[in-house]
Amino acid sequence: MDSRILIIEDDKNIARIIQLELEHEGYKTSIAHSGREGLDILEQEKIDLIVLDVMIPELNGMEVLRRIRSTDDTIIVIMLTARDSVYDKVNGLDLGANDYMTKPFEIEELLARIRSNLRFRSVKESDVLSIQHLSIHTGPREVYANNELVELTRREYELLLYLAENKNRALEREQILNQVWGYDYFGDTNLIDVYIRYLRKKLQNLNGDSLIQTVRGVGYMMKE
């Protein structure tokens, strides 16, 4: 597995047991025994998931989580704590924890939750098509440019998605018309030019240069 997991746990025995089990499963791991050490590792390494104990020295787990979420909402965080009060769980989840486990716990359950969270993130990421400043979320059919939502009609969205799925390929107008409007559409291919202008205008409002380029004598291409 390519996923890298950071264990932030001050109990060295527990941290080592978790590390050995994770590495046996094929994960790459790093260990920190304090909040500050954990944040330092995050600065230096690409981490996919954090197993974060609440009661750690220097900076507690809640503060570490708060700092992580102030700059990054993609890293998966599973909280570990000996406390089982509803307040602690709600506080952790409100701060952005993805999951919560109370000590003592079974290592098999922790491994199952790690697998589940990583699998869910993988599915989520597969639903996002990114090209430079542009992100196309195919599930909700939303488009973001520079993290700002771009309002598109259904046909504009379908045209943009088709261009993005075939990025760096010159697409003929007839080809675009058939794929986006359907083979039973017998309208003028000039319709493509009109919709390309619509898209360029909406996307250029958020970025100076258009990603959609004209290929003379052929049609259009979205170039990365």
Rank of each mutant, 00 (worst) to 15 (best):
D40H: 13
K12P: 05
E37K: 06
V215Y: 09
L203F: 03
E25P: 00
E43G: 10
T189R: 03
L42S: 07
G26F: 02
S70M: 14
S34V: 04
K89A: 09
L95Y: 01
R69T: 04
L191V: 11
S210Y: 01
M55S: 12
K89L: 07
L206C: 09
K124G: 05
R141S: 15
M55G: 06
R121T: 01
Y220H: 12
S30E: 04
I31L: 11
E23Q: 13
T153D: 15
G26D: 09
V128P: 05
Y185S: 05
E109S: 12
R66Q: 12
N166G: 09
V180N: 06
L52F: 09
I176E: 01
Y100S: 04
R216G: 10
K46Q: 13
N13P: 06
E156N: 00
R155I: 14
Q44W: 09
D94N: 12
N178Q: 07
N205Q: 13
K103C: 08
Q213S: 15
S122Q: 14
F120I: 11
A112S: 10
L20R: 13
L118I: 03
V180L: 05
P140Y: 08
S210V: 05
A32I: 03
Y144F: 12
K46L: 08
R36C: 03
L159S: 00
L59G: 08
T74W: 02
E9Q: 04
A164V: 12
Y220L: 07
D40V: 11
G26V: 04
R16Y: 11
K201T: 09
L152M: 06
M1W: 01
K103M: 09
S85K: 12
Q179V: 07
D84T: 15
M1D: 05
E63I: 05
M101N: 03
G96D: 02
V54P: 04
D127P: 04
E165L: 11
R173A: 08
F186W: 14
I114M: 02
R155C: 10
Y157H: 07
Q213V: 15
G208M: 07
R36Q: 09
E21Q: 12
N205E: 15
Q132A: 15
Y27Q: 05
V123F: 13
L211Q: 06
R69E: 01
L206P: 00
T29K: 03
V215L: 09
P140S: 14
T214L: 15
D48C: 00
V143W: 05
L39S: 06
L110V: 10
L42Y: 08
E125V: 06
N178P: 03
E224C: 11
D127L: 13
L149C: 07
D209F: 10
I176A: 03
I196P: 00
S116H: 05
K46T: 11
E224M: 15
R197I: 14
P57C: 11
E224D: 15
A82W: 08
Q19L: 10
R155F: 14
D10C: 02
L20W: 07
V180Y: 00
K89T: 13
P140H: 14
L95K: 09
T153I: 05
L20P: 02
G35T: 02
A97G: 06
H24T: 12
Q179G: 02
V64A: 04
D94L: 10
E43C: 07
I18R: 00
Y144W: 08
M55T: 12
L110A: 05
L80T: 05
I7A: 02
E43H: 12
K201L: 10
I114E: 00
R115H: 07
A112D: 03
D193M: 14
